[in-house]
């Protein structure tokens, strides 16, 4: 999985935001606010990552058990799919 072209991650006044540009605006004309864990996962997905790798990375970085990590990653990926922000490689 990888973040599609045309979703730009920015840091603004200490916050993590994502702006869709180009054709993506037709699907979502707005600004996405990411909290710390979402930003962490987003940046991993910019490079490309599988769901399993994301779960492992989340557990590594944050104080969270496997069950929680699995749920959080699944929910996040679902959100991204709804935004049409993910391309499956």
């Amino acid at each position: 999985m990888k973040i599609k072209d045309g979703f730009i991650y920015r840091q603004v006044a200490g916050q993590h935001v994502v702006i869709p540009v180009g054709e993506n605006i037709a699907d979502f004309n707005g600004i996405v606010n990411l909290n710390e864990t979402a930003a962490f996962m987003w940046l991993k997905l910019q490079e490309g990552s599988s769901q399993e790798q994301l779960v492992a990375a989340l557990q590594n970085e944050f104080d969270v058990d496997a069950q929680q990590a699995l749920q959080d990653v699944a929910a996040f990926v679902q959100d991204l799919r709804e935004l049409k922000a993910i391309a499956d490689e």
Binding site: I8, Y9, R10, I19, V21, G22, I31
Partner: peptide, 8 residues
Amino acid sequence: ISRMGFYL
């Protein structure tokens, strides 16, 4: 500019 990620 439109590709730089501003809310334009």
